[in-house]
């Protein structure tokens, strides 16, 4: 009796989870996919290979790649400082890290425009340049690596480092051979999420980049412009490409992250 109940409980749980996932994500994603091939594969192909579409995809991917590399390094550094250093105001800084998550991205864009725009109080005007894309994406993806690395660093066995020191390793060697390998899975996982986020970012780009086709128009903004100019197939086609890129990246990063953890099995 209880066994039968247990099984039906499992089935119920799985059913609810799958239904929820379908309504919220899978079915809408399938709808985009269908829309993108509505006019046949030829239409899909010509939609994603227009010069403007290709340029926007290229801009998005290159900017995302740069941003992920930079934030992997600086995110790890920030996590290190937040975990290992003591300084006044540390708790406030720690809470600030999540701000890019909490802030509506359009507000992030506006903030950046005010500080790094034509009326910049520090005289740095990056508005409508490619650097502004990188800047906006750096801002919105900042928390990912920090928040992925922080808990791992907190849990890291300090005695491992002391053991390495007593065996003759200097600070740099301890970091490179002991600390870093243990952080790598978390860095990769955080970087994967940051990349997926960067590829899809819209709100923070819209104001500061100026959306100049072939120069500063990111893929997400391109999609928006296609919807506005009544080209739903073109919008859906580029969306599908972004979707696939994000999926593939998450899978690759997941695989690397798991591989780096294989010694724990």
């Amino acid at each position: 009796m209880s066994r039968a109940f247990g099984i039906s409980g499992d089935v119920l749980g799985r059913g609810v989870a799958m239904t929820y996932l379908s309504i919220v994500a899978l079915i809408p994603l399938a709808a985009v996919l269908l829309e993108s091939v509505d006019g046949g594969l030829d239409t899909f192909w010509s939609a994603v290979t227009t010069e403007q579409a290709v340029a926007s995809l290229k801009i998005t991917l290159i900017a995302s790649l740069i941003v992920v590399l930079v934030n992997a390094v600086f995110g790890t550094l920030i996590a290190w400082v937040l975990v290992r250093d003591e300084f006044p105001g540390k708790n406030i800084v720690n809470s600030l890290i999540d701000l890019p998550f909490a802030l509506p991205t359009i507000v992030a864009g506006l903030t950046l425009l005010l500080f790094y725009g034509p009326d910049s109080p520090v005289g740095i005007n990056l508005a409508f340049t490619r650097a502004s894309i990188v800047l906006a994406l750096l801002f919105v993806t900042l928390p990912f690596v920090v928040r992925a690395v922080q808990p791992v660093l907190l849990e890291l066995d300090r005695e491992m480092e002391q053991a390495a020191e007593s065996l003759g390793a200097g600070k740099a060697t301890v970091f490179r051979r002991i600390v870093l390998p243990n952080l790598t899975p978390a860095i990769i996982a955080g970087a994967g999420l940051a990349f997926a986020r960067a590829v899809g970012e819209f709100g923070s780009l819209v104001l500061i980049t100026g959306n100049i086709p072939f120069k500063t128009q990111a893929a997400s903004v391109f999609i928006f412009s296609q919807v506005e100019s009544d080209n739903p197939i073109g919008a859906a086609a580029v969306s599908v490409v972004l979707l696939l890129v994000a999926l593939v990246v998450l899978l690759i990063f997941g695989w690397f992250s798991k591989r780096a953890l294989r010694h724990e099995e």
Binding site: D157, E159, Q162, A163
Partner: peptide, 9 residues
């Protein structure tokens, strides 16, 4: 060390 401090990686 008491808890070995093995380099687990």
């Amino acid at each position: 060390f008491q808890h070995y401090a093995a380099f687990k990686h």
